[in-house]
């Protein structure tokens, strides 16, 4: 067995201390070590985005990142998006706009969509497509996904008007 490393990091706002083998990926740590199975394996090569999570405010493919590299970082997974019982507005938009079919790619897709809107609250549809190019979905043809993100962007615009 490879050497083990003691890690301290923040996961969905809570501190985690855990020992991991040096070669473990973040995806395996989340799914097998921490039993957070919302983050999905679908290719293991960074080609499909099903394992997308946010680390220090940037999205990455957790199948590629080494768990050891989480030391001192802040992680958000799909399980950390909602507040209490209420779905996060992005999650709700995906539900409301019919963007979820088999749903397997959705945790990664939703994390990525949320990141895109945080980066640019006035995202255009073309920018959404570019921003989601690393997330493969086999069910939806992406159209309803884009509708959902557009609705959240619209929501932000409306909020902006209210406050402005």
């Amino acid at each position: 067995m490879s050497v083990k490393i003691n890690l301290d990091f923040t996961l969905n706002g809570r501190p985690v201390t855990i020992e991991v083998p040096a070669e473990m990926t973040v995806l395996n740590l989340l799914r097998d070590g921490l039993d957070l199975k919302g983050t999905k394996y679908a290719c293991g090569e960074g080609e499909c985005g099903a394992c997308t999570i946010e680390v220090d405010g940037r999205t990455i493919n957790s199948c590629l990142m080494m768990a050891a590299d989480l030391q001192g970082r802040a992680v958000m997974t799909i399980e950390g998006m909602q507040e209490g019982h209420a779905l996060h507005p992005m999650q709700q938009a995906f539900v409301d706009h019919g963007a979820v079919q088999c749903g397997f790619c959705m945790p990664g897709m939703i994390i990525q969509a949320n990141y895109l809107v945080k980066q640019n609250p006035q995202l255009t549809r073309e920018e959404m497509k570019r921003g989601l190019e690393g997330n493969i979905c086999r069910c939806t043809g992406y159209t309803k996904v884009l509708d959902a993100v557009a609705a959240v962007v619209g929501l932000n615009e409306n909020k902006g008007l209210e406050h402005g």
């Binding site: 999205t59 590629l64 990525q112 190019e133 690393g134």
Partner: peptide, 9 residues
Amino acid sequence: FASEQIRNA
């Protein structure tokens, strides 16, 4: 280059 997630890492 690749995708947003890859570009970030």
